[in-house]
Design a protein around this nucleic acid. Structure first.
Lengths: 334, 334
DNA sequence: CTGAAAGCGCTTACAG
DNA sequence: CTGAAAGCGCTTACAG
């Protein structure tokens, strides 16, 4: 390492390292002259401060950390973009760590490499880290689970309500026999959407028929494959399908089309998310918009609020119905 | 800060801090007994090492840093995903910093918060940082410009060849009057694609007609707006358009359709990128695929190669023609 | 207005 | 096998 340190700058400038430090940080009371001279030398030597040395003393980094691993493609950019915008407003940077190493989260936060933490990890072993963050009063927002503590909060999409809304929209349009494309079993959002679907049916006195549920895992290819098998095996076609997410909706629509069914003429389909392709595909997919950028922005601002002393809480963001052409109104048709 | 430090662990365990450090890192020669005892205490106290303290001494973090600001939506995830996979193979993590603060790059690298650096910043003031990275032998790969030095390299999409290939594909399909949708003026990729377009025309003795160039900036809405104006003003429709990127292709196709032109029956369109919607939209867009994930993976592996002593170089990744339905073969038609 | 000194939390020869 | 001590690069009272 031929790195130039504060010591080198001090020697070259003929002053003490305290003076260099003060000049660099605009602290202390230096003559304008000395300060400018030191700054010039630092610049000439291409001096770059070692942030580890600094961090050891100051304990703040003006950085928010986002720790993630399993982020669905299209979401990722929107999340990051909205978070960054929100951080920048406050003069903070955004540090995204893509890693499975949960210890890193605690380690970064406790070493004050980040002043606040946002987490999107579907890891079960999160408990220990959570406890450490809690004890150390690290301001933390979870995006993938609901927790509430003094300085820990959650900002999540209201998947239960999303399931209700999607199903209700089909019902309003006259559909009675409503099937379902499942997501990954055990997944938090999936569980809630499924519950919303069933509850909406029950509230309207409609039949929940397990035979009309097709398994999936949020991926287009899997939804396509399973729907193809379903049709090949002579599966019954209900009035409509509610797909756990848009990608699955796209998959089943492709399978239906290949088997000669027209959407929405023969069967309606609704999704959740409103991914970009939902509006480009033919027919455009009606869906419940998952407002990712709102989630990102809110998560960041909640972290800042907690840094100012506010308590943690759970925020459930409502989806918004986006009507396109994949659902047919069949009221009065039969 | 009620943080527990190595000192607390030492006191609680009744040993010296050296012993704790050695136990934690598996260094030195401790009795299995002491080691286990210390580990237990550390665990019980929820001890998390301060990585600033460590970093100050060791000078390695097993992290690759990706510094970016202007990343186009769909790309971002693919880039990050491929980079992460490549890092993980080597037991490294990926640290993404979204920031305008170029000094942070140098500062992270010189403080060894990251062992290697990948940069995607379209900033002009990059020069000074570049110089610092060079002098300090920081292994660096640029994704948005071509540089070659001992430990600095580039991995870029071959935009010039992309422009040639797209134009040639139109020519092979019998098109002679070929228009162009421009990207952001001054943009590196845009300049090269434009040059490829013109050179391909020249090589085939075809006319380059500036009247057939429509301005743009890579965004769909802008391409749509400009093409709409072009058509409203009675602009001439050539045989085909080569759009600087897929989003622009989508924009012009929408404008053309609204004005009663059918793609590819009345006019052909080709893009560059192969974004996800290119295959979902109607008609599917023929395009030159920009292999983002290859770029991410190659960038990371080049950083590692340079860490093993290899020199920097410039890699230009070729695109790949993806044929869909937006280009009509009109050979022998006239 | 400037500098000597202590200390942030860790690691690493080295002595015992 | 274990511990005392120096030092990584910085900041921050405090003395002068």
């Amino acid at each position: 390492m031929n790195k130039v340190t504060i010591k080198d700058v001090a020697k070259e400038a003929g002053v003490s390292i305290s003076t260099v430090s003060n000049a660099l940080n605009g602290t202390g009371s230096l003559s304008e002259e000395t300060k400018q001279m030191v700054l010039d030398v630092a610049n000439r030597l291409n001096y770059i401060p070692n942030i580890n040395g600094r961090g050891l003393k100051t304990g703040s980094s003006k950085m928010i950390g986002f720790y993630t691993i399993s982020v669905n493609g299209a979401y990722f950019y929107e999340l990051v973009d909205s978070m960054y915008t929100e951080c920048e407003k406050r003069g903070f940077g955004l540090n995204i760590m893509v890693t499975h190493d949960l210890n890193l989260i605690a380690s970064h936060a406790l070493s004050r490499r980040v002043d606040g933490v946002i987490i999107y990890q579907e890891a079960a072993e999160m408990k220990r880290v959570e406890e450490i963050l809690r004890v150390n009063e690290v301001r933390t927002v979870f995006l993938d689970r609901e927790i509430e503590d003094k300085y820990i909060g959650s900002v999540v999409f209201d998947s239960y309500q999303g399931g209700i809304d999607a199903t209700n929209y089909l019902i309003e349009n006259g559909h009675k026999r409503i099937g379902y494309i499942n997501g990954t079993i055990g997944n938090y959002d999936c569980i809630l959407r499924t519950k919303g679907y069933k509850d909406a049916l029950a509230q309207h006195g409609l039949e929940y028929n397990p035979a009309w549920t097709i398994e999936g895992d949020f991926r287009e290819a899997v939804a396509y494959k399973n729907m193809t098998e379903y049709l090949d095996n002579g599966g019954e076609i209900p009035d409509a399908f509610f797909a756990c997410n848009d990608l699955s909706a796209i998959g089943v629509m492709r399978a239906l089309k290949e088997h000669g069914y027209s959407v929405p003429e023969d069967v309606s389909v609704i999704g959740i998310d409103d991914i970009e392709v939902a509006k480009y595909i033919e027919p455009g997919i009606s869906t419940i918009k998952n407002q990712i950028s709102g989630q990102g922005a809110l998560a960041v601002s909640k972290v800042f609020d907690m840094m100012s002393g506010e308590n943690g809480d759970i925020k459930r963001l409502p989806g918004r119905l986006v009507v396109r052409n994949s659902v047919k109104n069949i009221n009065g048709t039969n």
